[in-house]
Design a protein around this nucleic acid. Structure first.
Lengths: 110, 110
DNA sequence: TTTTAATATAGCAATATTACGATAAAGGTT
DNA sequence: AACCTTTATCGTAATATTGCTATATTAAAA
């Protein structure tokens, strides 16, 4: 197989999984962090920061975009990428909710 | 290929990617949520909640465990699983940091 | 001790992911 | 127009992931 049974889960579960999966690669974490480091958005030079060939970086960017974590605006012959705050908010809120639930539950058994 | 160039990234990037990757599947999100829903830890019956065969669930649990997101304590002939709060904290803190950085940066370009 | 219950592992097949080089596409520049 | 720069796509190969059935393991229960 190798194909996930997506029909069997809730929208929310699939959304969280999709966003998390997009971040689930160090190159994409590095891309996100680079987008954070520079002011506002960044056009070009993402390739120069990563230890990967240009087509590979392009593919990682595409996956981040498909998952909704970044947006890309065409500016002339280059593309301006920036993070989609909503997507990060979704993840942050989700994990904050988990932590809150953990905190109010009895956890003495482990 | 298919193998990630892990040598080229920081410890932090690999940690975040590893944790995020572990959550990057709806079945594992469902497992996490089930562990949250019940009080404290849960022994057994995770298999009954998922639309997957027992060995497949076992494999997902193993991956969550390898990533450090859950712990498993052997209790008799069953295993008591619970979430590792530290791992969730790591993710929550990370995304909160991202959001903070996004908020203080100029984002007028996109 | 035999059986039952719970979980893990082995082995397999299908699909997905990662990565590269080569090439295409599309917009500037000269 | 000819060229350069930037990014995307194609084609390919290697590896990883997902999921199953069958089987092993381990411990409690009968």
């Amino acid at each position: 197989m190798g194909a996930t049974k997506t029909d069997e889960y809730t929208e929310s579960q699939i959304l969280v999984a999709t966003l998390a999966k997009a971040i689930g690669h160090p190159a994409r974490v590095a891309i996100i962090e680079y987008l954070m480091k520079v002011d506002s958005c960044i056009c070009g030079d993402i390739v120069d920061v990563l230890p990967l060939a240009q087509p590979t970086v392009s593919r990682h960017l595409k996956e981040l975009k498909n998952a909704g974590l970044i947006r890309g605006n065409v500016i002339g012959n280059s593309i301006c990428y920036c993070i989609d705050k909503n997507a990060v908010d979704t993840l942050q809120t989700y994990f904050a909710g988990l932590i809150h639930t953990i905190s109010i539950k009895d956890k003495t058994c482990c």
